[in-house]
Write a protein that binds this DNA or RNA. Structure first.
Lengths: 178, 178
DNA sequence: CAGTTATTTCAGTAACAACAGAAATTACTG
DNA sequence: CAGTAATTTCTGTTGTTACTGAAATAACTG
């Protein structure tokens, strides 16, 4: 397998985009490469195809594994680890959302809740500021609760809902269908 | 207005979280500060409260304005610009999503579509790779289409839908209610 | 229109994250 | 258990972005 100009373009754009979302460029590039590749690849191949140091691949692979985005497959008679992406585009998205939620939203919620606790015996912070914090806490809680419910739905249901688009609004009780 | 320990904690955490999402720390901190503050603030105040250079505040303010997250308010008899956040938590979220979509998702879609065009007279890229690109294009298109529809719904409808959580799935045609 | 205040731009510095290459570790093999 | 292959860890370097402080510009005032 070698990188055609088409693939290069895809991989480079993906890497570029990753950086904007706080993801290391090499990590995104490897993910893009593995997404495109029909077969699993070993670290050596990735290293030479993307022209990055072997050690850099090692670190990035670990990062992708911690996100549960890739999996190892072993070939009989080959000691090296081979990697490929897990799931289809839809599952990829859900995995990324789940990861970011756990790593970034949950700590925010923890922080917000602790702020609410501290508020009680805090008499220097203006009431209006406390209100803003409370509002943010409620908002993030609601979002988290919504996500918890929706992420439990089967994939097929989610896809159906998405294809319905704005039509879901028609089912709001007490709302006229048009 | 001075920063109480509670506020400091909130602002620092927010700034920290911003960096993880590819947002400049100072930018996030200023947004957090303005969110908490009951009154609009001028750049000088922000600069001294957060202990960052005046010029840094100027740059960050521009960034927040380009995201449409803050607005200017002027006080009679005061030449300085005063800033405050726009909208409530919910509107903030929608604004941020809209901004990221426009800046980051739309270019991806453009790239993917161009890749699809190039595919036609590209005989070196394996068919399986082309398939993967096509699949990604369809996926991103569907998501974008869904977003376009949902973002048009009135805020109240969106909130109702969110509060319904997984219940919306009950209304899928051909599905038994339980 | 000189003087003052507010804001922005710019250039250099500092801080940080990404990375390469070497060294060390681990896992295998005959 | 020596030797080899694969992987990881570590250290120093590079490249990038954030930031400061100074200078320039713009906006207002008496």
């Amino acid at each position: 397998m070698n990188i055609t100009p088409l693939m290069e373009r895809y991989i480079l754009h993906w890497g570029e985009m990753g950086t904007r979302w706080g993801v290391n460029r090499t990590v995104s590039q490897i993910h893009a490469l593995l997404y495109l590749s029909p077969e699993a690849m070993n670290a050596e191949q990735i290293s030479s195809l993307l022209s990055v140091a072997r050690s850099n691949v090692s670190t990035s692979i670990k990062e992708l594994q911690s996100w549960d985005l890739i999996e190892v497959s072993n070939v009989l008679g080959d000691r090296r680890d081979h990697f490929k992406v897990k799931g289809d585009t839809w599952e990829m998205l859900l995995t990324i959302i789940e990861g970011r939620k756990r790593r970034e939203i949950d700590p925010i919620l923890t922080m917000l809740r602790q702020c609410e606790l501290e508020m009680h015996n805090d008499h220097e912070t203006p009431e209006s500021v406390k209100d803003q914090i409370r509002q943010m806490t409620n908002f993030v809680s609601t979002l988290t609760e919504w996500y918890a419910q929706v992420s439990e739905l089967p994939k097929g249901t989610l896809i159906t809902l998405m294809n319905m688009g704005a039509k879901v609004a028609k089912f709001i009780p007490g709302k006229k269908k048009d």
